[in-house]
């Protein structure tokens, strides 16, 4: 995950509390989504950014996961994400995200 984004997530978690923050990812690949999810839950696996060794355990979802899809307006979703849903390997993304959430997410 981009170092600047790590800093933003860290600052927001401090400001609003880890339990009040959910991170929504838009990565195009399962692996990239998994890495970003790991970063905001178990800490930066690349040991490069501000979240290195910081186990925030945040709630984290990909925008193509059903949890997010069901929570937003159907029309807006179709307009903003519908096309990408057709393009991405959604099953792979869901499986990566679930694995990380089950292991590291506290909320």
């Amino acid at each position: 995950m981009d170092l600047e984004n790590q800093k933003r997530v860290k600052d927001l978690a401090e400001k609003y509390g880890e339990e009040n923050l959910v991170v929504i990812l838009g990565a195009a690949e399962g692996e990239a989504a998994g890495l970003a999810a790991e970063t905001v839950t178990a800490g930066d696996p690349t040991y490069a950014g501000p979240l290195t060794g910081v186990q925030l355990g945040l709630g984290v979802y990909h925008c193509c996961e059903p949890q997010f899809k069901q929570a937003v307006n159907e029309e807006v979703y179709e307009d903003q994400i519908g096309m990408m849903e057709m393009v991405l390997d959604v099953d792979d993304i869901i499986s990566e995200m679930k694995t990380i959430r089950d292991q590291f997410s506290k909320y």
Binding site: A28, E29, M84, M86, V87
Partner: peptide, 20 residues
């Protein structure tokens, strides 16, 4: 590097738009 096949993703997006 986990960034996928960039041209391929772009082509899929253009194709998906043609479908839409």
């Amino acid at each position: 590097a986990g960034a996928g096949d960039v041209p391929q993703s772009n082509y899929k997006m253009i194709g998906a738009l043609a479908v839409k």
